[in-house]
């Protein structure tokens, strides 16, 4: 029973992280319908920027955190400006391939600078954050990361609900043509949504880095694991991303705990194919109606 409970807790924690990692992806897809295959690399970019600021520049942790967020924000903006803007209106395969190429570039650059080894942040979390319920324990990294994530979720919820930029972004996501005709600067919204998505990705990268250590290959693999998560939740629903993340996280930990550890990494993709066959637009996604 304890084993079950521990798995349940781990699954929820990991699932929550997947959900958070998927948030940036959903944000980009929702506003500009670009599928971002470079999402894992954006996660890694945030994690490594933070590492560089903390260890090389010896900045205090909060300052480094804020600077990382600013850096990833600019990175997202630049990526949209240089690579994605010329492709507005081009066929899907080109956009997909462009983000794959982008992923290669970012990954190659990071491998050149930091190499493929595992890096770790210096320990800066207080021990008191760890929680224990009988035999079940939650290590401090999980509680911290979940706290950070919930904070960001709240912030973004408020941003989308009340700020004018947030409302513009929602309007573009809802109906691009209508938004255009009402005077929303759609290109600006695309740029902003890439910037914000990169920021969110950077934040999730740091959180993942605190938990597992930072490694380019692992983080880019998580970037691909975002796909089962978002398909489960529906590609255009941020709340769905969190729920999809939880389901995938639980599925993974239970498969790993009870069946076999090697199946663990494939089970999300098997679930993905099954879901696509039963409900092609995910559990919470919008069903597209096509007309000739």
């Amino acid at each position: 029973m304890d084993f079950f409970l521990q798995l349940l807790v781990n699954g929820i924690c990991i699932g929550f992280l997947y959900g958070i990692s998927a948030m940036g992806f959903v944000m980009i897809f929702k506003s500009s319908s670009v599928v971002n295959f470079a999402h894992g690399e954006l996660l890694a970019a945030g994690a490594f920027l933070f590492l560089a600021l903390v260890t090389w520049a010896n900045l205090p942790v909060p300052a480094a955190f804020l600077l990382t967020l600013a850096g990833t924000f600019i990175l997202g903006f630049v990526i949209e400006r240089l690579f994605l803007r010329p492709l507005i209106g081009e066929p899907l395969i080109e956009v997909v391939m462009l983000t794959i190429g982008l992923a290669s570039i970012l990954k190659g650059a990071m491998l050149l600078i930091w190499g493929g080894n595992l890096h770790n942040y210096p320990d800066f979390l207080p021990e008191g954050l760890g929680l224990h319920f009988g035999a079940v324990s939650i290590p401090p990294v999980y509680t911290t990361s979940i706290l950070i994530s919930i904070l960001f979720l709240l912030l973004f919820g408020l941003f989308f609900k009340f700020s004018s930029q947030g409302i513009y972004m929602r309007s573009v996501a809802d109906n691009q043509t209508a938004a255009l005709s009402l005077g929303v600067h759609v290109k600006k919204v695309f740029a902003l949504s890439w910037a914000i998505a990169a920021l969110v990705a950077g934040m999730s990268g740091i959180v993942l880095g605190i938990i597992n250590g930072i490694n380019v290959h692992e983080l880019s693999a998580i970037g691909l694991k975002v796909f089962p998560v978002v398909i489960l939740g529906g590609l255009d629903s941020i709340g769905g991303a969190i729920i999809g993340g939880l389901i995938i996280g639980l599925l993974e930990t239970f498969t790993g705990g009870y069946i076999s550890t090697s199946l663990r990494d494939v089970i999300p993709y098997i679930a993905l194919v099954v879901i696509l066959l039963i409900r092609p637009y995910g559990l919470f996604g919008l069903v597209e109606i096509e007309r000739v």
Partner: peptide, 24 residues
């Protein structure tokens, strides 16, 4: 410690991106 993999990755990505942007 210049190894093949990162450079290859980088140049490969660059080739794809440049082709898509300039000669789709």
């Amino acid at each position: 410690e210049l190894t093949l993999a990162p450079l290859r990755e980088l140049a490969f990505g660059l080739a794809i991106v440049l082709f898509i942007l300039f000669e789709p």
